[in-house]
């Protein structure tokens, strides 16, 4: 495990004790605490990447502030959600996006269509 969340008992800033919530990524459960973002839950549980780039490379969080779109995934059937910007809700279903990941929309060819306007 590499990235991880500091346990409240060991945390010098003294946050309250955990209120566990569980989300799934491609069916695998990950547990975090209420108030985290989806990216925070995944990283806090040691999961570093979930998206596949057009060239087949792994992507997870890069900018952490909603700018880079590296961390996008499908959340409860809505595609292209920036996981670093979205608060996790217990039971959220996250599905990774990439070349062969199922998506609600697809353009001609092999590339997934984006819900983002190409301007």
């Amino acid at each position: 495990m590499v990235s991880r969340r500091m346990p409240p008992a060991a945390d010098p800033t003294r946050p309250p004790s955990d209120v566990p919530i569980t989300i799934t990524l491609d069916g695998t459960p990950y547990t975090g605490t209420a108030g985290q973002t989806l990216a925070g839950v995944l990283l806090g549980a040691g999961r570093l990447s979930w998206r596949t780039s057009p060239g087949g490379a792994s992507r997870g969080v890069f900018c952490g502030i909603g700018v880079c779109f590296d961390c996008i995934a499908t959340v409860n059937d809505a595609c292209d959600v920036r996981l670093c910007q979205r608060r996790a809700v217990d039971g959220d279903r996250v599905v990774s996006q990439g070349l062969d990941a199922p998506l609600p929309l697809r353009s001609a060819g092999t590339r997934p269509a984006h819900g983002v306007a190409d301007v």
Binding site: V2, R4, G44, V61, G64, C84
Partner: peptide
């Protein structure tokens, strides 16, 4: 990670990258 990501995760999640 960008340094900003490491900061945001530390401050707002208590997650070390």
């Amino acid at each position: 990670f960008s340094a900003g990501a490491a900061q945001a995760l530390a401050k707002a999640e208590r997650v070390a990258v």
